[in-house]
Design a protein around this nucleic acid. Structure first.
Length: 399
DNA sequence: GACCCGTGGGA
DNA sequence: TTCCCAAGGGT
């Protein structure tokens, strides 16, 4: 097997288009040359195209255009994107990322921000601890007299919110360090290519997979190899119905050869879902603003601003429960129940019953209460606020 | 290692 | 509808 490189004459950045010649000679691919014009030269190699070559070539031709994929790669922007992308899909992250780095373009600016402002931008993204830890990281780095991230995997790893994955991602993508990343995508790709039956999440599996990724580094930028594996997992080697016919690793994929790539990796254990019912008391003032309370206790949504919430027993009357939550000093009319809103928080499945309670404006302690509407909250809020707001607004329109 | 955290989209 | 899961980290 031989490979070829197509290089533009005089091009400053030699990022050659590589492709596999297979059993053909260069004279048998005139179409490629013709389409590229006379300013290209073809170099043929008698060395086989490696798995890494195929992967990197595929990535260079198929990488999605994403706001954090700038050249040169900025370490701060890489960090912000990686934190946002933890357990969160690209399409949801992209607009938030743009907003975030426009407002806080570097670590110093982020360190100077208030946590409430950071949470406000983060609202709706979920896993709010990520935002708090990122903010803490910025203050730690800037407070220690530096304004830049350390160019060292171990040093990165000690910063708040940075674990094995994020340290390797920032180190390799931004600094070119040879650290293999193992996210869910890469674990799936490697499990399929190697037809590995073991649990990729167990420590033994992690060590083996990292070694497999490391073998792809020689001759390539480690960040490009890492990102290519993740991109492949996200767009081709998908959990269900992988598009194997478009995969650059097809010929070396043991899972494909076995005819069952989807069976790798083995499924994770499922956690039982817990069903909850809440009532949400929607105090709405004459100007349309809602009364929000900072969530004080409990494991969920702590510190965020939401309409007052309370557990709802099976036989309880939502309106009665809601009226019991009227804060002192607030003049209200009677409450009206609306159709339930569904909200999922990790393994919990929550049915939230909105009760609209029109109210006269009143001043309440600002540490715990604020009047606001979606998009204007001073501090963090959950997408649940928007869901409740939408239900009540739509129903009011009907009547 | 087990369990915790948000959210929305696709199958 | 229900289930799975997505560029994980902290405890």
């Amino acid at each position: 097997m031989r490979s070829a490189r197509l290089v533009q004459v005089g091009a400053k950045d030699l990022s050659p288009l590589r492709f596999d010649l297979g059993n053909r000679t260069e004279s048998q691919i005139p179409g490629v040359l013709a389409s590229q014009g006379p300013s290209f030269l073809l170099f043929c190699h008698n060395t086989p195209m490696t798995t890494a070559d195929a992967l990197v070539d595929w990535f260079e031709g198929h990488a999605r255009s994403l706001p954090w994929r700038t050249e040169p790669r900025d370490a701060y922007r890489t960090l912000v994107s990686e934190i946002m992308l933890q357990q969160t899909q690209v399409d949801r992250v992209a607009p938030r990322f743009v907003e975030f780095v426009r407002r806080w373009p570097d670590l110093k600016a982020l360190a100077a921000a208030s946590e409430d402002d950071v949470l406000a931008i983060w609202s709706g993204l979920g896993y709010y601890r990520r935002a708090r830890l990122l903010h803490r990281l910025a203050r730690e780095v800037v407070g220690s007299g530096r304004n830049q991230l350390p160019e060292d995997i171990e040093a990165l790893r000690t910063l708040p919110g940075i674990g094995d994955y994020t340290a390797a991602a920032v180190g390799s993508l931004a600094f070119g360090l040879e650290a293999p990343v193992l996210d869910g995508n890469v674990q799936r790709v490697v499990a399929r290519v190697t037809a590995s039956d073991g649990d990729p999440r167990a420590s033994g599996g992690q060590t083996r997979m990292k070694a497999w990724v490391r073998k792809l580094f020689p001759g390539h930028h480690p960040g490009v190899v890492n990102e290519a594996l993740m991109e492949l997992g996200a767009t081709v080697c998908t959990p269900s119905r992988p598009r194997c016919d478009s995969c650059p690793l097809l010929r070396c994929c043991k899972g494909y050869q076995a005819g069952c790539p989807e069976e790798y990796p083995p499924p994770r254990k499922v956690r039982a879902t817990e069903h909850l019912r809440w009532v949400a008391v929607c105090f709405v003032g004459s100007d349309g603003r809602w009364l929000l309370r900072r969530v004080q206790e409990g494991p969920i949504l702590r510190g965020l601003w939401l309409p007052p919430l309370a557990d709802l027993e099976a036989e309880a009357d939502p309106v009665s429960v809601a009226m019991g939550l009227v804060p002192e000093g607030l003049m209200v009319e009677t409450g009206t129940m609306f159709g339930a809103v569904r909200h999922h928080i990790t393994h919990r499945r929550i049915e939230v019953i909105p009760v609209l309670v029109p109210t006269l404006d009143a001043d309440l302690p600002a540490a715990v209460w604020q009047w606001s509407r979606p998009g204007e909250v001073l501090g963090g809020t959950s997408s649940l606020f928007e869901k409740l707001h939408k239900v009540i607004r739509n129903n009011e329109k009907d009547s």
